[in-house]
């Protein structure tokens, strides 16, 4: 323990971690919610199936926002860095939507 003391030359500030634990519990709650949806809503009907798929995707992006924004501190970076990261990801999503909407039928017929 003595070896630690010599490094503590300056005053060490008190930890400010309340907002980090809050995000942890939000992530946990969203995951629990996903489990509840997975086991209570039946995918037997078309409506149920697509409702489940869309709610799962939305909740995934909610979790993504908290992990990247708070844990990776992207919210605190300058605007140009935020857009450097977010813009290419938006293009990937756009690419995926275009692929499914325009080419989905064709891929389904040739496979």
């Amino acid at each position: 323990m003595a070896s630690h003391i010599e490094n503590n030359s300056g005053e060490i500030a008190k930890p400010q971690t309340a907002h980090l634990w809050k995000v942890f519990f939000i992530l946990l709650a969203v995951t629990v919610l996903e489990f509840i949806i997975a086991f209570t809503i039946s995918a037997d009907t078309e409506v149920g199936k697509w409702f489940k798929i869309s709610i799962f995707i939305i909740l995934t992006f909610v979790k993504c926002f908290y992990i990247v924004g708070t844990f990776m501190h992207l919210k605190e970076e300058v605007k140009s860095l935020i857009w450097t990261v977010v813009l290419p990801v938006i293009f990937v999503v756009w690419f995926l939507i275009a692929l499914v909407l325009l080419e989905g039928e064709y891929i389904g017929t040739v496979r």
């Binding site: 500030a13 930890p15 980090l20 942890f24 844990f71």
Partner: peptide, 21 residues
């Protein structure tokens, strides 16, 4: 998720230069 929050706590401790934390 838990190991992610402990990682961000390590980063936070690094900002305060708290080696033990």
């Amino acid at each position: 998720i838990f190991s992610s929050v402990t990682m961000v706590l390590a980063v936070e401790a690094g900002h305060r230069r708290d080696k033990a934390d």
